[in-house]
Simulated assay, not measured.
Amino acid sequence: MAARQAALVASLVAGAPTPPGFDPVPVDVARRALLRKRAGDVARHWPLLAAGLGADWPGTFADWAAGRPTNGSLRDGWDLARELRDRGTLPPLGAEELVAREAATRYDGRRAPRPRRLPAVARAGGAVAVQLAGRVRLLRPATG
């Protein structure tokens, strides 16, 4: 029973195939509903990223998250923003939000984010932010 439950959960949240004995249609409906809920949670932590993508936000997030288990809303948004930056598709508002986060917080993609203690500079999409004495300033807005 535990193995079947684990297989169902993996199918719902991590992109695993539908386990034998389950009707794929309701499982797919539940998977899509969970992705929409997850996108809403991430948008609450990354409002500028979501606003910058506008109507493309739900689809962009769902395409990115479909085969990935969640690392929490903050980290999911961070990982998505970095991937969009690397592909050159990060919107200006998302770039500004990303540089502000990266100037204030250290995040290596594996462990939980931690506040920076030393001064830091972050850049993405033309945006530049600096953190000094715990305060973040956007020095240059993103280019669009």
Rank of each mutant, 00 (worst) to 15 (best):
L49M: 06
V128N: 02
A33I: 00
A2W: 14
L8H: 01
R85N: 14
E97D: 06
P119S: 13
D76L: 10
R87S: 14
A55L: 12
D86S: 10
R137E: 15
R36E: 15
L49H: 04
R87V: 05
P24A: 12
A50V: 09
E97C: 01
P24V: 02
R101T: 02
R85G: 05
L12T: 01
A124H: 03
N71H: 15
G59A: 15
R114K: 15
H45K: 13
A10Y: 01
S73Y: 10
G125W: 13
L139R: 12
A142N: 10
W57Q: 00
A100I: 11
V25G: 14
L53R: 08
A39C: 03
E97I: 00
L74V: 07
L84N: 06
S73E: 13
A124Q: 02
D79S: 14
R135S: 12
P19W: 06
R87D: 14
T89H: 10
R75A: 15
P24M: 10
T18E: 04
R31C: 02
G72A: 06
A124I: 00
L132I: 12
D41T: 07
L98K: 03
V27Y: 09
D79C: 08
L84E: 06
G59S: 14
P91I: 12
R135F: 12
V99K: 08
R111A: 14
S11G: 09
D63I: 07
S73C: 03
A10Q: 13
D108C: 10
R117N: 07
R114Y: 05
A3W: 10
G59D: 15
A95F: 00
A100W: 03
R44G: 10
K37Q: 15
T105D: 06
R106T: 09
A30M: 12
D76Y: 09
A14N: 05
G94Y: 13
A51L: 12
G125L: 03
R38W: 09
Y107L: 06
L74A: 11
R32Q: 11
A124R: 02
R106I: 04
L49I: 05
A142W: 07
G94W: 06
D63Y: 11
A16V: 01
V42G: 02
L138T: 08
P119Q: 11
L74T: 08
P19M: 04
W57G: 01
